[in-house]
Computed example of a mutant assay.
Amino acid sequence: MCTTNDQIAASGSLLMNRKKKINSILKKRAKKANAKLHVSAKPRYISKDERARQEQQEAEQ
């Protein structure tokens, strides 16, 4: 069973691809976790219907 340089190079690139994939997955997870920590200062969206109901309730009171 002879191994050629092509087979060795191919196995080396597979290892690099595996490492790259694992690293990219871990980076994605870290990015998502970091994004959850930073809450947006933007107010929550209120639909027109919901605003109309709130105005109606305030007018009744």
Results as ranks from 00 to 15, higher is better:
36 K>C: 01
47 S>I: 02
18 R>L: 12
27 K>Y: 06
26 L>R: 15
27 K>R: 10
45 Y>R: 10
7 Q>V: 05
48 K>G: 04
60 E>K: 15
51 R>S: 07
52 A>S: 12
30 A>N: 04
57 Q>P: 03
6 D>S: 07
14 L>S: 07
51 R>C: 01
42 K>L: 15
4 T>I: 08
43 P>G: 05
12 G>F: 04
54 Q>G: 01
26 L>S: 09
33 A>Q: 14
20 K>G: 08
10 A>K: 12
12 G>I: 06
54 Q>W: 02
60 E>R: 15
6 D>G: 01
44 R>D: 10
2 C>Y: 03
7 Q>E: 15
22 I>P: 04
33 A>P: 01
35 A>N: 12
54 Q>A: 13
43 P>M: 05
39 V>H: 09
36 K>H: 04
43 P>W: 05
1 M>W: 04
57 Q>L: 14
57 Q>V: 13
51 R>F: 02
25 I>G: 06
34 N>A: 09
32 K>W: 02
33 A>I: 11
9 A>E: 11
53 R>C: 10
3 T>S: 11
5 N>L: 04
42 K>E: 15
17 N>I: 01
9 A>K: 12
55 E>G: 04
5 N>C: 05
53 R>F: 08
48 K>E: 00
57 Q>M: 12
12 G>L: 11
43 P>H: 07
2 C>L: 12
57 Q>T: 09
49 D>P: 00
16 M>I: 14
48 K>D: 06
1 M>A: 07
18 R>Y: 11
11 S>M: 09
27 K>T: 10
47 S>H: 02
2 C>S: 08
37 L>P: 03
46 I>R: 15
22 I>L: 14
1 M>T: 06
1 M>F: 03
8 I>G: 05
33 A>H: 06
13 S>I: 11
57 Q>N: 11
46 I>P: 01
33 A>S: 07
39 V>W: 00
42 K>C: 08
38 H>W: 04
55 E>Q: 14
31 K>I: 10
